[in-house]
């Protein structure tokens, strides 16, 4: 069983949803982002999403755009991101790690070589934002051959006719984009989520995580209760960004503040049993 499947199965047995915090590789420097990554599991992360910086992140709002720019300035590359995962795996072999990014850096690295190296580094799944099911053959065969899950985005705009096709191309879990919009902007209402998730469940047995606009412990708990997990990204990056000095360097307690926030999110999720 893959790490992703094992983790969701364990959480189901526990009767709660997953917390999936996000960090951008090398934001604002390699040591700080590595410290955050290492600290995530003990702070309560059930799965981890690592953003791979790209110059032109089409689906991201200003918060993640700036995080990506800081990461790039600090020298982030796809291979550097894989090296972070290898380092992480030396001490944690259970927490699933998902890379989220855009296609061009992968194309440039070589799709086949990337999938091989990512799997060997301990990556479990990929979210490639700008490769929809229509273009899936670009990456799917190599991902599958290396046991990498291809986690797909389902959006409020994904209609009934399209949903089965998107889900058929998905493995690991489904990432429900809660809003029609970019990351870190607005949030969906509980009512909207409560209507959207059963619509997806009718078509799949895969776990569903909700992302985009999940910021507070309350929102995370609600999302993890309605679906099977909550992705929190921009809210954590905002905290990190608030704890940089004028030169953009991390202040001494920046890592602690981000991890404290993860802890608060995790506590809220753990205190909220899933709807049967």
């Amino acid at each position: 069983m893959s790490r992703i499947a094992a983790r969701f199965a364990a959480l189901k047995a526990e009767g709660r949803g997953a917390l999936i915090p996000f960090l951008e590789a090398y934001d604002p420097d390699p040591a700080t982002s590595m410290a955050i990554l290492r600290g995530f599991p003990r702070a309560g992360a059930d799965l981890i999403e690592i953003g791979v910086p790209f110059t032109d992140p089409m689906a991201d709002g200003p918060t993640i755009q700036r995080a990506g720019q800081r990461g790039l300035k600090a020298g982030a590359t796809l291979s550097a991101t894989l090296a972070m995962v290898r380092d992480f795996r030396r001490e944690d072999d259970a927490t699933p790690v998902i890379l989220m990014g855009y296609f061009n850096p992968i194309l440039s690295y070589g799709v086949e070589r990337f999938c091989t190296d990512a799997a060997a580094s301990g990556v479990d799944g990929l979210i490639v934002v700008d490769v929809p099911p229509e273009e899936a053959d670009e990456i799917e065969p190599h991902a599958r051959a290396n046991g990498l899950d291809l986690i797909r985005l389902v959006a409020p705009t994904t209609d009934e006719a399209r949903l089965p096709r998107v889900l058929a191309a998905t493995s690991g879990f489904v990432y429900y984009v809660a809003i029609t919009g970019i990351t870190g902007t607005r949030s969906a209402t509980s009512e909207a989520l409560a209507a959207a998730i059963p619509r997806i469940r009718r078509h799949t047995d895969l776990p569903i995580a909700i992302g985009f606009g999940v910021r507070s412990p309350e929102q995370a708990a609600e999302a993890a209760r309605i679906a099977d997990g909550a992705v929190v990204a921009s809210a954590l990056i905002d905290t990190l960004a608030e704890n940089l000095d004028a030169q953009g360097r991390a202040k001494p307690d920046a890592v602690r503040k981000v991890l404290d926030q993860v802890r608060a999110l995790a506590e809220a999720i753990r205190a909220t049993p899933k709807a049967a």
Binding site: M58, A59, F103, V129, D130, V131, P132, E134, E135, R152, L153, V154, A155, P156, T157, T158, D159, R162, V166, V177, T180, G181
Partner: peptide
């Protein structure tokens, strides 16, 4: 060519 866009845009 092709259609390399996020899922939110794909239906549109």
């Amino acid at each position: 060519g092709g259609r390399f866009v996020a899922e939110t845009l794909m239906p549109l």
